Amino acid sequence: MQIDCHALDYISSAGLRVLVIMKKGCKEGVSLIGVNDLVSDILGQTGFSEILGI
């Protein structure tokens, strides 16, 4: 599953929790496209960049 993040300026802890739920429920995996620098930094600092395709 691909998620378009072009319009995403920030991601909160609730948004990260949604990504975890999606990752667990989606057998083919979850990947994010169009991630900006701030969101990419947040994903990297929280370890999400290692479990999600970016």
Results as ranks from 00 to 15, higher is better:
M1V: 10
Q2G: 06
Q2S: 11
Q2K: 15
I3N: 03
D4Y: 08
D4F: 11
D4W: 13
D4V: 10
C5N: 03
C5V: 07
C5E: 02
H6E: 15
H6A: 12
A7R: 11
D9T: 08
D9N: 15
D9I: 02
Y10W: 13
Y10E: 14
Y10T: 05
I11H: 01
I11S: 01
I11R: 01
S12M: 05
S13N: 13
S13I: 08
S13D: 10
A14P: 01
A14H: 12
A14T: 12
G15R: 02
G15Y: 00
G15N: 07
G15S: 08
G15K: 05
L16W: 01
L16S: 10
L16F: 02
R17G: 12
R17K: 06
V18S: 15
L19R: 02
L19Q: 06
L19E: 10
V20L: 15
V20Y: 05
V20S: 10
I21C: 11
I21P: 00
M22H: 12
M22E: 11
M22P: 04
K23R: 14
K23W: 07
K23T: 09
K23F: 12
K24M: 11
K24G: 13
G25R: 14
G25S: 13
G25E: 11
G25T: 11
C26R: 12
C26N: 15
K27L: 13
K27H: 11
K27M: 09
K27I: 07
E28G: 06
E28F: 02
G29R: 10
G29H: 11
G29A: 06
V30W: 04
V30H: 05
V30A: 10
V30Q: 08
S31Q: 08
S31P: 03
S31I: 05
S31Y: 08
L32A: 04
L32R: 03
L32W: 00
I33P: 00
I33G: 03
G34M: 05
G34W: 01
V35I: 13
V35R: 00
V35N: 00
V35K: 00
N36D: 14
D37H: 11
D37L: 12
D37V: 14
D37R: 07
L38I: 15
L38S: 14
L38Y: 15
L38N: 14
L38M: 14
L38C: 10
L38R: 14
V39A: 06
V39L: 12
V39I: 06
V39G: 05
V39T: 03
S40D: 09
S40N: 09
S40F: 09
S40T: 08
D41P: 00
D41S: 13
I42F: 01
I42V: 15
I42M: 07
I42H: 01
L43C: 05
L43K: 03
L43Q: 00
L43W: 02
L43A: 03
G44S: 11
G44D: 04
Q45E: 11
Q45G: 07
Q45H: 11
T46Y: 00
T46F: 04
T46L: 06
T46W: 00
T46Q: 06
T46N: 06
G47S: 06
G47H: 01
G47V: 07
F48V: 15
F48A: 08
F48K: 00
F48S: 06
S49D: 02
S49M: 05
S49T: 09
S49I: 09
I51C: 07
I51T: 10
I51K: 07
L52R: 01
L52E: 02
G53A: 08
G53E: 06
G53M: 06
G53V: 09
I54P: 03
I54T: 07
